[in-house]
Design a protein around this nucleic acid. Structure first.
Length: 289
DNA sequence: GTCCAGGGAATCA
DNA sequence: TGATTCCATGGA
């Protein structure tokens, strides 16, 4: 572990608030100076905007912080081209992209993404963040940086002997048993995360994820999109996405009764293999604007 | 007190 | 397959 710094020069698609508050991640927090501090793997990093550049500083297990950043922030993907292509679809897409033009979809750890989105079920973002923070503090490893203690996200092994009651006491609510069961399934090898990482067939990976306790269609799609599985063609449908899709394209009087298959069909026909990105622009725009 | 949150699972038709 | 209902918790 060593202190490192990396300066990203004048990135085109990169805005801290858009990246960290578009609902894809739960462990980045805004600081008083407008920078963000977060933790992924065993890296504790602060990102601060300096003019047109972004200064990353923190401690990193990997000997090259730049490589870690390029992978995690998806910096090898051409978002300018993606936005250009999606903007041509219709005026709503153009508007939502203008609003969230600095979004990048992070490559988050698969295990952490699975657990985080099981916790997200019928929950709100501030509370999800609180639960994940308490979970990490209770079972993760300590990392000290600039006099503050941060905690890594606990590994499957670190959650091996945690009981359902202990989860309940952390405030997980009815999700306690799901977290327990999924952890055991992964420890027992009933679902092999390494195999999922190597399987190019999205539907096969999705089916496997759906066997995990607490993972339904929406959570599975979030895992596929937001983890390092990085399947940009999936289209997670939650209450907000249902709302915005109904408002824009369907106009049913009761949005809760809109057929999910109908939404999926429109998304597939309209956005194709970039549906996941389109979903994220629409979600962020509708929630924040 | 009531409603809602990046839903899933069990139950029933 | 498709629709209903229940599930803890905390903030608005």
């Amino acid at each position: 572990m060593k202190e490192q710094q990396y300066i990203l020069k004048e990135p085109k698609t990169f805005h801290l608030k858009d990246i960290f508050e578009c609902g894809q991640c739960f462990r980045w927090n805004e600081q008083e100076d407008g920078s963000y501090t977060g933790i992924w793997k065993e890296n504790v990093v602060n990102v601060k905007k300096e003019g047109k550049d972004y200064v990353f500083s923190g401690i990193c297990k990997h000997e090259n912080l730049e490589e870690e950043i390029y992978t995690y922030f998806d910096l090898n993907r051409d978002y300018e081209r993606i936005k250009e292509e999606l903007s041509k679809k219709d005026k709503y897409m153009k508007t939502s992209i203008t609003y969230g033009k600095g979004i990048r979809i992070l490559n988050q750890d698969l295990w952490e993404t699975i657990i985080s989105f099981i916790i997200s079920a019928n929950n709100n973002i501030p509370r999800i963040k609180g639960i994940i923070e308490r979970l990490s503090k209770a079972y993760g490893k300590e990392i000290e940086w600039k006099g503050k203690i941060y905690y890594t996200f606990p590994t499957p092994e670190e959650l091996k002997d945690v009981t359902v009651k202990e989860y309940r006491d952390l405030g997980l609510g009815f999700r306690d048993i799901r977290l327990y069961e999924t952890t055991q399934m992964i420890l027992e090898g009933k679902v092999n995360l390494k195999e999922l990482e190597e399987n190019p067939n999205t539907m096969e990976v999705r089916e496997k994820l759906l066997t995990l306790s607490g993972v339904g269609p929406k959570v599975a799609d979030c895992i596929l999109l937001f983890s390092d599985l990085k399947r940009l063609e999936v289209f997670p449908i939650d209450v907000w996405v249902r709302r915005v899709m109904n408002d824009l394209y369907i106009q049913n009087k009761d949005e809760t009764k809109v057929n999910k298959k109908q939404i999926e069909k429109i998304a597939r026909e309209k956005f194709g293999d970039l549906a996941g990105l389109a979903q994220q622009y629409l979600f962020y725009w509708r929630r924040e604007a």
